[in-house]
Design a binder for these strands. Structure first.
Lengths: 140, 140
DNA sequence: GTCGTCCCTGTACCTGCCTACAGGGTCAAG
DNA sequence: CTTGACCCTGTAGGCAGGTACAGGGACGAC
């Protein structure tokens, strides 16, 4: 499968594929006689994984780690496990944060149903309390 | 309170405060006779809100919306409510995604306890399925 | 009054993640 | 055998979110 077909199927720009290859996220695919990239079918699934993990807040560097973790096989398992557990802890914390945020928003929405008088905003109060915990994420 | 004190208390760079002011996220504080910014105590809480919301995946533009939503008072309530509800829906979806991701990781970690034979990685399979749903986020 | 430390404004630069050329080759259709 | 759609490499640009000067003023301690 050629670059634009893969890109089209996954919904990314062709340039993005070359960019991923350049930064080492995707392996270089074999080339046709004319020098065109010829991706295997599995590249579709792989790329969907990348885009989805990214949508979940992982950086491309982290996605790369996840991929290695995924394809490393039994022998990498102990190192991979540590990585997976630390990512899992990140996720737990992140989920808890988002749940609190969501609850705050729900509370805020509920105050909209009150009579015009007794309104105040719970959002600021609930969010402003704890400090960020892991500076490595959030770039973005 | 002066710039560096506020920055220090919240754990951000002083330049970041000026940057936020420039982009309209923070109101211009009053100035001392010598032209120095003099922030009120409430700025600490406000900034913590900003950094925290940001850590939860909101962009600075979204944070600004949230702040307006927060301080808008009763009359903005209907518009604010719509905004809050759409953000809440975003959060729900995001939480569900992250939970699936976490469960996949947990499953992966569990395979590490299996005998060396029957291992395969559930991560790729579980994540690669659905497509991103909202392209407006994802900056970062 | 002159250090040293802080503050000011303005502009330039950096990282992550793309996206867009420029300049040129491949290839199938007509 | 030329035209058009695609592909290649390489380099530059763009946006978000900061961060880092440069050049100069404000102030308290001595």
């Amino acid at each position: 499968m050629r670059t634009s077909e893969l890109a089209g199927r996954v919904g990314v720009n062709s340039e993005t594929l070359r960019y991923y290859e350049r930064r080492g996220l995707l392996d270089e695919p074999p080339r046709s006689s004319g020098g065109y990239r010829d991706y295997p079918d599995s590249a579709v699934e792989l790329l969907r994984f990348v885009k989805r993990a990214q949508g979940l807040g992982f950086t491309l560097d982290e996605v790369e780690e996840l991929l290695h973790l995924d394809t490393g096989g039994p022998d990498d398992c102990d190192a991979a496990r540590a990585l997976a557990e630390s990512r899992k802890a990140d996720l737990e914390a992140r989920i808890a944060d988002l749940q609190r945020m969501r609850d705050s928003l729900a509370e805020l929405i509920a105050t909209c149903d009150l009579p015009r008088s007794g309104r105040r905003c719970p959002l600021l109060a609930t969010i402003a309390t704890p400090q960020p915990r892991r500076s490595s994420r959030r770039r973005r």
